[in-house]
Simulated scan of single mutants.
Amino acid sequence: MESPDILARIEHDLSVSDDAMRSIPAGSTAAGPEPFGPLIDAYTRADAIADGTLVAVPEPVAREAGLRAPVAITRAAWSDCVEWGDTDSNRQTPQDEEGRLWDVLFMTAFAARRYMRTTFPVELYRVPRGGRARTARPTELTCRLHRGDASEDVITISLPDED
């Protein structure tokens, strides 16, 4: 228990502001007030996968390529580097999505070991879709190692200009 002398000094000490001894006000957190008010809505990684903004990579395929965390690829990166159908094979050169996905994942694992950072470039060759190209051309993706919805480690592969 504090002595009455200490309490008297605090109450009469003019250098201590009136609100210095108050509890945390309503609408605030221990770290401080919520600067923009309470959270109204959040767009999670699971939401992005559900609506197709991100394409989830099957875990066994990612593990086989050497990636130990859940992997998702943005729809734009998927369209550019993975997506391939019979029409593409007939028009350009025979390939399939499994092989193109493997190339992206293998080169991502290779780049992760090379750069050892949380964000790094992934350089690879792929035949561009939708044209007449038959030979692979260089392209670059970006890989981010970060926390997912439940603070688990996750990997997101995107085009360099995507957030």
Rank of each mutant, 00 (worst) to 15 (best):
Ala46Glu: 13
Pro35Val: 03
Gly130Ile: 10
Arg113Ser: 12
Val57Ala: 04
Ala8Tyr: 14
Arg144His: 14
Ala26Gln: 11
Pro60Ile: 12
Cys81Pro: 00
Leu39Thr: 12
Pro4Asp: 03
Ala26Tyr: 05
Gly131Glu: 07
Phe106Asp: 04
Arg75Met: 09
Ser158Trp: 00
Ala111Gly: 09
Met116Pro: 01
Leu67Asn: 00
Pro33Glu: 08
Asp5Thr: 10
Pro138Lys: 06
Arg9Lys: 14
Gln95Glu: 13
Asp41Gly: 07
Arg45Asn: 05
Gly148Glu: 12
Asp18Arg: 12
Pro25Gly: 09
Asp88Glu: 15
Gly27Asn: 08
Ala30Leu: 14
Arg22Thr: 09
Val61Cys: 09
Asp163Ala: 15
Ile73Glu: 00
Pro4Asn: 03
Glu123Tyr: 08
Leu159Tyr: 04
Asp149Gln: 11
Val127Gln: 01
Ser28Leu: 01
Glu11Ser: 15
Phe36Ile: 01
Val16Ser: 05
Asp47Ala: 10
Met21Tyr: 06
Trp84Ala: 02
Tyr125Val: 07
Leu54Asn: 01
Val122Ser: 06
Tyr43Glu: 12
Leu67Lys: 02
Leu67Tyr: 00
Ala8Ile: 09
Ile24Gln: 10
Ser151Ala: 12
Pro94Ala: 09
Val71Leu: 04
Gly130Val: 06
Trp84Ser: 00
Thr142Met: 13
Glu64Arg: 14
Ser23Glu: 11
Glu152Leu: 05
Glu97Asp: 06
Asp18Gln: 12
Arg63Tyr: 10
Gln92Arg: 10
Leu159Cys: 13
Arg137Val: 03
Ile73Phe: 05
Val55Gly: 03
Ala65Pro: 03
Glu140Cys: 10
Arg9Ser: 10
Asp153Tyr: 03
Pro70Glu: 11
Ile157Glu: 03
Leu105Ser: 08
Arg45Cys: 05
Ala109Asn: 14
Arg147Ile: 04
Asp161Cys: 02
Asp5Lys: 15
Gly37Asn: 00
Asp13Pro: 08
Trp78Gly: 02
Gly131Gln: 06
Gly27Phe: 04
Thr108Met: 03
Ala8Cys: 09
Asp86Asn: 06
Met21Gly: 12
Ala48Pro: 07
Ala30Tyr: 12
Leu39Asp: 05
Phe36Ser: 07
His12Pro: 00
